[in-house]
């Protein structure tokens, strides 16, 4: 249970970090952010990176601010930053509600929002938030900068479209309209565990009818995503039990659930039905 040897790089600026990353990435060099996923994996020797580019002292990566209608979250922003409201309105409330479901307090002191996205665990709450709300990922490398839509970022279990020499410099989440409602629900067996299925929903009510519905499901498939069938079951309907049940049913039908030794696909499908319905009930 001890990590294999590695060379520790501690850049102080983004330019320096990108230069080192470009050099060591081909030799299995990796970014070290909060270490709350990478260090356990190294302890198990499931990863044995030869170089770690530690970004904890890089200046300019701790930005947490609203710019152009988006919340900008730098690579050094820890989960615990969201224990408090970071932005007025429904998005801030959504983030303070969701963060409490991530791991445990001491892990939230170190783990980062962007590290969660880069790690891309299918059950990660932040990945679900980014996918559901239509977040953007800013990837920087010596070669330049690109913006990746969350919908194109997650490629499978712990796999993303980030290149090995790219730093996930920041994530951006669009603000929610002031009248947006949201609901989140996850199922797991013990407090702080990864979810076996989770759902995040947002919508507005206009003229008594649901509009702009977003239904995201995480932990059920190899990556979190919006479920258009469930959204269609909500838009134009009155917010209430009937529409919520129809959306939950549509989501359960639409997903292609992961299976593992403890959890059959059918069980996960049932969980998807339950978490979508409960997320919707919490939103009302």
């Amino acid at each position: 249970m001890k990590p294999a040897p590695f060379i520790h790089h501690v850049p102080k600026t983004i330019e320096e970090a990108l230069a080192i990353l470009a050099e060591v990435a081909p030799q299995d060099g990796r970014v070290l952010a909060g270490g709350q996923s990478l260090v356990p994996i190294m302890a198990f020797r499931m990863a044995r990176p030869a170089h770690l580019v530690d970004i904890n002292e890089v200046k300019g990566l701790d930005k947490l601010a609203v710019e152009g209608g988006k919340l900008v979250i730098g690579a050094r922003v820890r989960h615990a930053a969201f224990h408090k409201n970071v932005v007025d309105g429904p998005l801030g409330k959504l983030l303070t509600y969701v963060v409490r479901h991530i791991a445990h307090y001491p892990i939230r002191m170190r783990g980062t929002f962007c590290g969660s996205l880069a790690h891309a665990d299918p059950a990660s709450e932040w990945c679900l938030v980014a996918a559901t709300l239509g977040g953007e990922i800013i990837a920087k490398s010596k070669r330049g900068e690109r913006v990746i839509a969350a919908a194109n970022f997650f490629e499978g279990i712990m796999s993303t479209s980030l290149a090995e020499d790219e730093l996930l410099a920041e994530a951006r989440l669009p603000l929610l309209p002031a009248d947006a409602k949201f609901g989140f629900y996850e199922f797991n067996r013990r407090a702080g565990d990864f979810a076996m299925a989770a759902a995040l929903v947002t919508y507005r009510v206009a003229g008594g009818k649901i509009a702009d519905a977003r239904v995201g499901v995480g932990g059920a498939e190899d990556r979190p995503r919006r479920i258009p069938e469930a959204e269609a079951a909500l838009n134009g309907k009155a917010a209430g039990d009937e529409a919520f049940r129809a959306a939950a049913e549509a989501a359960a039908k639409a997903v292609d659930p992961l299976e593992d030794v403890q959890t059959s696909g059918e069980y996960r499908r049932d969980l998807v039905r339950a978490v979508v319905r409960r997320a919707l009930e919490h939103s009302a």
């Binding site: 520790h8 270490g35 260090v39 302890a43 892990i107 002191m109 170190r110």
Partner: peptide
Amino acid sequence: EPVRSCLMFAVQ
């Protein structure tokens, strides 16, 4: 900050 000391490197 209360943290897990098994998930930090001493050099950090």
